[in-house]
Amino acid sequence: MQNSHSGVNQLGGVFVNGRPLPDSTRQKIVELAHSGARPCDISRILQVSNGCVSKILGRYYETGSIRPRAIGGSKPRVATPEVVSKIAQYKRECPSIFAWEIRDRLLSEGVCTNDNIPSVSSINRVLRNLASEKQQMGADGMYDKLRMLNGQTGSWGTRPGWYPGTSVPGQPTQDGCQQQEGGGENTNSISSNGEDSDEAQMRLQLKRKLQRNRTSFTQEQIEALEKEFERTHYPDVFARERLAAKIDLPEARIQVWFSNRRAKWRREEKLRNQRRQASNTPSHIPISSSFSTSVYQPIPQPTTPVSSFTSGSMLGRTDTALTNTYSALPPMPSFTMANNLPMQPPVPSQTSSYSCMLPTSPSVNGRSYDTYTPPHMQTHMNSQPMGTSGTTSTGLISPGVSVPVQVPGSEPDMSQYWPRLQ
């Protein structure tokens, strides 16, 4: 039975679970980093996980050691009161100082060594604690504590007292930064006198190289990059290397530039699409467009005044059976039934097929058609009795279509119309 579990990581490298990497692998990681390889490249070359490479390099940059820390136990506290007071002093002298600059000053002034120097995250935590204590304490208590930490007896009751030896409130920041720059020169002199001055200088240079600022491109470089971006948004590694040799930039910087440029292009394309949609959409909808001609068919113009009344309900007709019959029939052209047409008796099958359309009241044959006459024609229609054979009435077949029909004066039988409509 094995005491430890061995495995293979996602890159194909072998590791022992819970145990640190061998010293030979750690040394190779540092050597590759000094030669300029990126952590992701080191991870692929040595088949070590990216997190492990970053952790080893980060500890090497901070402490200069590649040895693993002790497994188990607690780390001794490195942010001692003396170190905290120095950090507060540096922050007062130059409020814009960075944590890694404070760390360098602690090393250069001999406050800490490589073994007990606090990390950048520890210094940031100390600065946050100082800021929170400043908010919790009152103004007087804060000034007393700062005077105690600074070891001075001057008056701290006013704002300019934060910067000793100065009279203009805006000047101390520059003086403090100048003092810090002077301390940086002392850093070089002190570290050069040490035993491991060369190694420390190499480590600091490598650290500065990794902690780079934003790349500033010249106009020629920007023009070359934009020209390549117009050709393709995704250049391959050969195109990037050719462009890197042409404009004297690292291939990694060119790759990052193209990634950022593609993101910018997507944002601009989104804005262009929004403007295009806004320009195509009308600002207001016309009133006429809300009524579609496919839904509402136009009603033909009436030929006679009587045809303006298109349904039985508008003429005072309360018989719903006839109203439904007229509205359900398709529109037909106007025609006239003459008196000489043969009077065919209704076929029983045809009569039964339209039995649902006729009223059940037996008085329908005896009703006159003056009910369908509009009010303004009552006088004219009353002067001509319906009993004469020459009287013409208008029957409504569908809305908007008038059918003048000659009705025999002897017997106005409704059943004569249905064979004609089939």
Rank of each mutant, 00 (worst) to 15 (best):
R125K: 04
S108E: 12
E109C: 11
N9Q: 00
P95Q: 13
K145L: 10
D23L: 14
H34I: 13
N9T: 02
E82F: 12
R59K: 05
M142N: 07
V120L: 07
V14L: 09
G51H: 00
N150E: 09
F98C: 06
V14A: 10
A131Q: 12
V120R: 15
S35W: 12
K28E: 07
M142T: 10
L106R: 03
I102N: 01
L57A: 00
D144M: 10
I42A: 01
C40L: 06
A79H: 01
R67G: 06
C40N: 04
P68I: 00
Y61Q: 06
R128F: 03
A139F: 10
D144T: 10
S54P: 00
I45S: 10
K75Q: 05
K28P: 02
K86F: 10
S49Y: 01
N124Y: 11
A99G: 15
H34K: 12
G36W: 01
A79G: 04
S121K: 00
P81Q: 08
R103T: 02
S65A: 06
G7Q: 15
D140N: 10
N50V: 12
K75P: 02
N129M: 07
E82C: 08
P39M: 07
L149N: 09
E31I: 06
I71P: 15
V53W: 01
G72F: 00
V48I: 11
R59S: 03
S132L: 10
V126G: 04
A37V: 12
I87Q: 00
M137D: 10
R125C: 00
R103E: 04
S4G: 12
G7F: 07
S85G: 12
M137E: 11
P39C: 13
I42M: 02
T25P: 02
A37N: 15
E31T: 08
A70V: 08
E31W: 15
M148V: 13
G138N: 13
S119T: 00
V53A: 01
L11P: 00
E109P: 05
L11K: 05
Y90Q: 07
G36N: 08
R103A: 07
L149C: 15
R77K: 10
T63P: 00
H5R: 15
I42N: 02
R69D: 02
G7T: 12
H34P: 02
M148W: 09
A79T: 15
Q135C: 09
K75I: 05
S4L: 11
L130M: 08
I29Q: 00
I71M: 13
M137P: 12
L127P: 01
S74R: 14
L127T: 06
V78R: 06
G36S: 05
R105Q: 13
V111S: 09
A131E: 08
R69W: 06
V30W: 02
R147K: 11
R19H: 05
M142G: 13
N129L: 08
M148D: 15
V111R: 10
S54N: 06
E31A: 08
R147W: 12
E133D: 11
I29R: 01
G73M: 03
P20M: 02
L107I: 08
E109Q: 12
G73Y: 02
Q136D: 14
Q10K: 15
S54L: 04
S54G: 06
A70G: 12
M137G: 11
G110T: 15
K86Y: 12
A79K: 02
Y90K: 06
Y90V: 14
G7C: 15
P20E: 03
P76A: 08
E62R: 15
R125V: 00
V83L: 03
Q10V: 06
V53E: 00
A139T: 14
P22K: 07
N116C: 09
N9A: 04
